[in-house]
Amino acid sequence: MKKILTLTFGTLLLWSCQNNAQNNVQNNAISSTTKSNQSMNTDEQIETIYQYKVTDLYGKEFDFASLKGKKILVVNTASECGLTPQYKDLESIYEKYKDKDFVIIGFPANNFGSQEPGSNEEIAKFCQMNYGVTFPMMSKISVKGSDKAPIYEFLTQKSKNGLQDSEVEWNFQKYLINEQGKLIKVLSPRVLPTDPVIIDWVNGK
């Protein structure tokens, strides 16, 4: 009788250990799947600039998806700012590198010191006459505040761009977008378009 009881107890103990081990494997698998799904959900929330369409200075739709494979410099501009001469350097690097999958997109904005008061037509005329701008210029938008344009919500919100939260400090702040449409760097308005940090990036250094 003692042998039978010992055998029965041993069998129950073995069954219990196997059952606990199986439950642990299942629980680990569920935990791993949950973490994987959470990671996927986070990744799915990160956007690219290719999801956005805007309007250019001449009223035509501009689809950022058309720039896939290019490096993009996005800059908010103004016609009556102390930094307005940056237009010259922006045009210079655009002319030099536009055939190397690089493009500049300008967004006139009147958020700082009311230094972009003109209409789209007036802005286009000013850019052409004073700086010979040929890089794509979009219609005037707001880059901060309650009426911030969706494209700038992407550029300034980490929850959308996956890089960082930022505020547009002043006219001519710069955002660098890589060939996959993802934000990789935010540069102060005081960083010149010809600064090595931009030129090296364009050249892949």
Score class of each variant (00 low, 15 high):
5 L>F: 03
94 Y>N: 06
84 T>Q: 07
112 F>W: 01
110 N>K: 02
16 S>R: 05
11 T>L: 10
38 Q>V: 10
74 V>Y: 00
63 D>P: 08
29 A>I: 04
92 S>E: 08
21 A>T: 08
89 D>K: 02
64 F>C: 03
23 N>W: 14
102 F>C: 01
78 A>H: 00
69 G>R: 05
42 T>K: 10
37 N>K: 13
38 Q>E: 12
80 E>R: 02
120 N>M: 04
79 S>R: 00
91 E>L: 11
98 K>T: 02
33 T>R: 14
107 F>W: 00
97 Y>C: 11
58 Y>L: 09
11 T>C: 14
100 K>P: 08
118 G>C: 06
127 C>K: 05
22 Q>Y: 15
20 N>P: 04
31 S>P: 04
11 T>I: 09
109 A>Q: 01
94 Y>Q: 05
85 P>E: 02
93 I>Q: 05
30 I>A: 13
99 D>H: 09
26 Q>E: 12
101 D>P: 12
48 T>K: 14
99 D>Y: 10
38 Q>S: 12
57 L>N: 01
106 G>A: 09
16 S>I: 07
21 A>S: 14
54 V>A: 12
19 N>K: 14
86 Q>V: 03
126 F>E: 01
64 F>S: 06
67 L>Q: 06
74 V>L: 06
65 A>M: 12
5 L>A: 07
65 A>G: 10
117 P>R: 02
125 K>W: 09
96 K>A: 08
134 T>D: 11
126 F>K: 00
80 E>D: 06
44 E>C: 10
88 K>F: 11
13 L>Y: 01
28 N>H: 10
64 F>E: 01
46 I>L: 12
103 V>I: 07
27 N>R: 12
89 D>S: 09
26 Q>L: 15
62 F>E: 03
118 G>I: 02
72 I>K: 03
124 A>V: 01
66 S>Y: 00
103 V>K: 00
25 V>D: 13
30 I>D: 09
125 K>A: 13
123 I>G: 07
122 E>K: 04
48 T>D: 08
65 A>F: 11
117 P>C: 04
127 C>R: 01
38 Q>L: 13
14 L>H: 08
19 N>A: 07
51 Q>N: 11
6 T>Y: 09
66 S>I: 05
89 D>P: 06
61 E>R: 09
41 N>Q: 15
28 N>M: 13
88 K>Y: 13
98 K>N: 14
131 Y>K: 03
69 G>K: 03
70 K>F: 03
58 Y>W: 13
92 S>M: 07
131 Y>V: 03
67 L>G: 10
101 D>F: 02
116 E>K: 00
107 F>M: 02
50 Y>V: 00
98 K>Q: 12
27 N>T: 11
57 L>C: 02
71 K>P: 09
96 K>D: 09
48 T>Y: 14
76 N>H: 01
44 E>H: 10
72 I>C: 11
49 I>F: 11
50 Y>D: 05
99 D>G: 10
20 N>M: 11
133 V>E: 02
41 N>I: 10
6 T>L: 15
65 A>V: 02
